[in-house]
Design a protein around this nucleic acid. Sequence first.
DNA 1: TTGTAAGCGTTATCAC
DNA 2: GTGATAACGCTTACAA
Lengths: 341, 341
Amino acid sequence: MSPKKVTSQMVADRAGVSRTTVSFVLNHIEGVQITEETRQRVLKAAHDLGYVPNASAQALVGQRTKIIGLVLTRSPGHIASDTFLNQILYGLIEVTQRHQMRLLLEVVEDLDHRDTYLELVWSKRIDGIILSGPRFDDEALRALDEDGFPTVLLGQLPGSSFYSVDVDNIAAAEKAVAHLVQLGHRRIACITHAQPQYSTTGQRLEGYRRALEAGGIPYEDRLVRYGDFTLESGYQQMKDLLASGETFDAAFVASDVVAIGALGALREAGLSVPRDVALVGFDDVPMARYVEPPLTTVRLPAIELARKACEMLIPMIDGQMPQQNQVILDTELVVRQSSGA
Amino acid sequence: MSPKKVTSQMVADRAGVSRTTVSFVLNHIEGVQITEETRQRVLKAAHDLGYVPNASAQALVGQRTKIIGLVLTRSPGHIASDTFLNQILYGLIEVTQRHQMRLLLEVVEDLDHRDTYLELVWSKRIDGIILSGPRFDDEALRALDEDGFPTVLLGQLPGSSFYSVDVDNIAAAEKAVAHLVQLGHRRIACITHAQPQYSTTGQRLEGYRRALEAGGIPYEDRLVRYGDFTLESGYQQMKDLLASGETFDAAFVASDVVAIGALGALREAGLSVPRDVALVGFDDVPMARYVEPPLTTVRLPAIELARKACEMLIPMIDGQMPQQNQVILDTELVVRQSSGA
DNA sequence: TTGTAAGCGTTATCAC
DNA sequence: GTGATAACGCTTACAA
């Protein structure tokens, strides 16, 4: 008992015209003059019957699905706690809705299953891709690059010709760490937001390095740990750091979510933030100002990033390439209490 | 320069067979005997050419898109901070991936735009719907109900014949509030997770009522406020409650996210949790145990809920209706520190 | 101004 | 065992 099936033929019959006319009327084709009276008849027939064009048929003939694929290179498990994703979705949904397009979510866990998102492309299920978290070791991505399939990266992949929207991760991280340096901290630990394979990981680490250097502080590998987008990873890595015997009076955690996890470990160890350890996060997720202590962080305009990416992508689908192929949005240090400023 | 277009005809030509044979081989059609040799030839040709069947064409003829629609009845803005959604996505993605299906995200903001998700159905863009947050005042939903379109509700809509997966919201809320009552609190405020139109709002409120009643505490309207899924709303409503002059020594906030917002307002007012106000949340989002103080809450098995919903839906698409049409999963009180137990 | 007819790329029913 | 051929529902030259 599936939904009633109404075809354009039925509309045509009811209006006493041909399918062509129905198509013309319903798609507001210019250059074709149609009697107002027939137009109304067709419209009424369509409405009476509750006609909705079959999307597959339209896609098949028109080579357009009106669907944009959001590809996330994460394990599904990360999805569950990565608040950053929410903001991306927000921005994307807003724009796609405005353009009467839809959003298809594809999560790609490991490199062995990369082709699942390529299949999305080859099978023409989507018109364009927004890919979050490009990785160097992603072969499929290279294939897309050569293809010229409408793609916008949320992030960057140096050496590729992809269009991308990103922030200057190096500068942003440097800002965060410089803030700690300026407050007089010398032993500054770092927990990244993701594993080294993600290009942003290296960038934020580089910012950390530069700020240290600018402050005349030697970089020490032993003060660095790798998170993986999750609260849990922040908690674990901070615990590990604490247990390692290394001393530090501040930490830069390159993701608020991971930072909140780290905060938990610090609290559990009986350490006070910012008194014992000053903390700076990254992202400025909505949650950041509500935790205790409110997180000092670098605001990454996530919603704007997503919006912009989507707005670049949509014209590309129609072959209109944006002038700028690398958009960099601004970040901003948001000083709250966790840094003790 | 879009991706190469390879049709089954090209595969057929290369393998020296007809399109039919290609289809048979690639779809592992039973009952048709094909020489192992031709089979291999076809397979090789398909592989060499990088053939991927056109999804629209398949959908058109097969009446199956292999896409499941996740419909969220929220404003996009709520998406940005509702962590609960992450867990839903997690569960859904896991199951859809296992069944080689995809997930389409549709956000429906207000009642005026309800038909956008109906269009998804009429246009046959999706094979089934998982709808989160059913509302009584949703006309489109009634239409779906009559249609018998494969649909599973995340939540419930009493009086409809929908299949649904939910928790016992009344009992869960009662559990939460009873915990506060048991700790000796008599003035217990309540902030809901959503507006009254959502069926769960009334249910959780009812649980709150029952626990009060069981404790011999009169229900007072003035102690109740309505949140809207966001941190911000929790913050505002708690502030409002504080400013209202009503006294209370405990609060039940029917969503962890909203509760974390409320926590912020409490802190800002210089009140200590749980000393001045004991707090119990709802959901047990991953974040709950990492905030300060860690939230006492009722665990809602969100991931399981999503998984279950998806696992019910997929057979329905093939016409196999589940025995049980209302699945209720268990909740569990998770006592942490915010309640002072 | 409207209708006819040819695809779009599959799958599936038949003959051969 | 394999290959024409007809759908599937729509858009769009091209005719009329």
